[in-house]
Design a protein around this nucleic acid. Structure first.
Length: 549
RNA sequence: GGCCCGGUGGUCAAGUGGUCAAGACACCGCCCUUUCACGGCGGUAACACGGGUUCAAAUCCCGUCCGGGUCACCA
């Protein structure tokens, strides 16, 4: 077979040579040890926690080594394309503190020289290498239709053979040049397949940066490398691009592990240096007592929108991901609270081989801890931005008066205390807990833990003695006096020992007041709440309560 | 089903031949306390199973079981 003729027949318009291509993609000029990593999503625009998880690993590896982290869009499948996806991806990543040095969306940068970063715009390059393979007799056109492939599968099932297009099953493998010309002339669609030189009895071994040494049988499948529209499949595009673009470490999900033999072989036949890989474990979720991969359809916590909508601080998401990524991060972070997390010596080797379960409780704990380290200024602006975007109707109510809101936050988040409160994990939760500070959102209680007469008596006496100038201890002394007058004990120890001996304790008295003023039985310091909302509002709420009984 | 990966408390995990098998989250108890938190102290709880190798095995080997991934003109 005249392979040169075949090559011209199949790809007549490809005139560039391998050398021409290499001239456009020279070896990167980087310092010793600098790593080049990439995020390579398809342009659906849907970025989930798993993407962020592995992108964070990419970003850390690149930046810790003074290397490059770039964005390449794998748009070889038109069905996956969504308008505006690239901007979405870039914005989402930015929101979570991950920025690209190079790639799609960075076209204004002068050093953005390994593009185009959209695979559809690189078709001419793939064709150069495809044509080379044809010339070497390592690739051939396949005219099989979908039906052909279906019946192939059925036949293989009947014979209990491994499914796939390979060896003796590969019908188009040995077509003559004449047959091919004939098919082409009659306008039949074709794909380009690799003529796999693999031997299933031989093994290849790779050293995965996370998994370690792994051996596989060689690939024997004549995989499609160019689809009928001339666009490459993932496998082919990946191998060509990561070589041309100088990726030093391909970090990708576990689901790719089994195609390593294919990629290894592609590298080999193309005469490239083998790529280095790090296959990351998936984020898992517990369900019905078993672990399973997080699914974007079923699990809202996988969608990054979820974190934005509920107002999780992006920094806390990053911290959580980092603790999953490198188990020694948490300890490091605790010990080096003053250091920028980017100083953490992130390592691929420390990444787990098995899938971590997404643990909402653990995540919340981290959120609370991180919130407790933020300044009033940080907390305020974060909440303000969140409310502006996700709770518009309450924005004016909550943020109309900055000084007031600052007082509220200072109290509720314990900002003026040595030990901060750690009640809150996300904005939605915080804002919901603040409603009683605002008349528009205050919801009076309908139930009291005591009979109406007692409640009335407590509230009436409380109003009589209340003085807004009292400090906390003065205020509480008065509550105590009031409690005793009404037959409640202030001896908490005695009360706890034998509660049945008393009508109740000062704790209940406080509770009654608390409920009347806030509508809730659990709140931060009551005295301060009364000071913040002011005597008038406090009085109004109490009077309304008395009247309603 | 073939191939590949994994399996330490409920969860995330240290661990690479000798430890009473760390730590964190969750849970429980006690203390602090006007509620809720915070904080302090303490506690329950694990090497999937069976065989080897070895003076010694969570760690090395084999088998079993369980979980996951993958077998497209999708990535």
């Amino acid at each position: 077979m005249d392979y040169n003729k075949l090559a011209e027949l199949l790809l007549p318009n490809t005139t560039m040579t391998r050398e021409d291509v290499f001239a456009k993609f020279p070896k990167r000029n980087l310092k010793e040890g600098a790593q080049v990593t990439r995020m390579a999503p398809s342009p659906t625009g849907f970025i989930h926690l798993g993407n962020l998880y592995s992108a964070l690993a990419d970003e850390r590896i690149a930046h810790l080594s003074n290397g490059i982290f770039y964005l390449r869009i794998e748009d070889t499948d038109l069905k996956r394309k969504v308008e505006g996806a690239v901007d979405t991806i870039i914005n989402v990543m930015k929101y979570f503190g991950i920025e690209f040095d190079e790639g799609a969306g960075q076209e204004q940068n002068s050093h953005n020289t390994y593009g185009p970063y959209f695979q559809r715009q690189r078709v001419e390059y793939y064709h150069v290498f495809a044509k080379e393979l044809i010339k070497k007799g390592l690739a051939y056109p396949c005219f099989c239709t979908e039906e052909d492939n279906n019946s192939l599968r059925e036949a293989q099932q009947r014979e209990n053979a491994t499914p796939g297009y390979y060896g003796k099953w590969a019908k188009c493998r040995n077509l003559t040049l004449e047959e091919i010309e004939e098919n082409l002339k009659s306008g039949k669609q074709w794909v380009l397949r690799l003529k796999s030189p693999g031997d299933e009895n031989k093994e290849i071994t790779i050293e995965d940066k996370i998994m370690g040494k792994i051996s596989f049988p060689e690939n024997v499948h004549d995989i499609v490398i160019l689809k009928s529209d001339g666009v490459p499949t993932y496998h082919f595009a990946h191998v060509v691009d990561d070589n041309l673009m100088g990726t030093t470490l391909v970090i990708r999900g576990n689901e790719w592990l089994s195609s390593v033999p294919t990629h290894f072989q592609l590298n080999q036949v193309l005469g490239f240096k083998q790529l280095k890989y790090a296959h990351t474990a998936h984020l898992m979720k517990m369900e019905n007592g078993g672990k399973r991969k997080l699914s974007k359809r079923k699990d809202p916590e996988l969608s990054l929108d979820f974190y934005r909508r509920d107002g999780y601080h992006p920094y806390t998401v990053k911290i959580y991901l980092l603790t999953l990524l490198n188990s020694n991060f948490e300890e490091w972070h605790d010990r080096n609270g003053d250091k920028d997390i980017n100083e953490f010596p992130f390592s691929v080797k420390k990444m787990s081989q098995s899938g971590a379960l997404f643990d909402l409780q653990k995540f919340h704990d981290i959120c609370k801890k991180e919130f407790s380290k933020m300044t009033l200024e940080e907390v305020y602006s974060f909440l303000e931005n969140w409310t502006k975007e996700y709770d518009k109707e309450h924005y004016q109510i909550y943020f109309g008066n900055r000084e007031y809101m600052e007082q509220v936050l200072t109290l509720c988040m314990g900002l003026n205390q040595k030990r901060r409160r750690k009640d809150f994990a996300y904005a939605k939760q915080i804002m919901a807990s603040l409603s009683y500070f605002f008349d528009d959102t205050f919801v009076p209680a309908t139930q009291y833990p005591y009979d109406n007469e007692t409640v009335k008596a407590v509230l009436t006496k409380y109003l009589e003695t209340y003085d807004e100038k009292d400090d906390n201890s003065q205020w509480f002394s008065k509550v105590k006096v009031l409690a005793e007058e009404l037959g409640f004990t202030t001896d908490m120890k005695a009360y706890k020992k034998e509660p049945e001996k008393f009508k109740g304790s000062v704790a209940q008295v406080s509770e009654i007041i608390r409920i009347a003023v806030t509508g809730l039985s659990n709140t931060p310091d009551l005295c301060t709440i009364c000071q913040i909302i002011g005597k008038d509002i406090m009085k109004e709420r109490i009077v309304n309560t008395i009247n309603s009984l």
